[in-house]
Amino acid sequence: MVAASFCLAVTMFAGTFVSGTHAVDVYNAATQAGMGPPANYFALSPWWLNFFANKPAVLFDHQVLGTLTAVTVLVTATISLRGAFPPAIRDPALAIGGLVLLQYVLGVTALVSQLMDAGVAHQLNAVLLLASLVWLLHGLRNVAAR
């Protein structure tokens, strides 16, 4: 659960660089650019600048982190839903599961459509997902191991 929240925070942070550099521009359906690791990840110098300003690298980071986060959140949701917990835990678990799926679909949509509106919806949905994770954490603040 804490792992899922941490993953989400890092991915949202990486997402701000995608937005800030307009990194979706590098996506090209014909060449498959923007899908898979970029050929020249460390094009910029000094090397750390690539994490913030190299568009293909920034986009790739966000994709990898987004996928890791989605898997972590889905595992968290599945464990929470299979645990036969009371509604105060079950409902936020459903919310994080549903919102992370929506978030991933919106992310792919924002990339392939290059629609600014889809990117904005993707950003706002990230906030809702974060809120749901806080909601679930709050419901779990007094749990004991079995």
């Binding site: 889905l74 299979r82 036969a84 079950r90 459903l94 799926l101 991933y104 949509t109």
Partner: peptide
């Protein structure tokens, strides 16, 4: 998943949700 279901049916609902999400994503790709 919000209904009081025993573990067997509950897991088939979970599986159904996961597979439909994967299915939509596969369709998009």
């Amino acid at each position: 998943l919000r209904a009081p279901l025993p573990p067997g049916p509950r897991d088939s609902f979970l599986l159904m949700a996961a597979l439909v999400a994967l299915q939509y994503l596969l369709g998009m790709l």
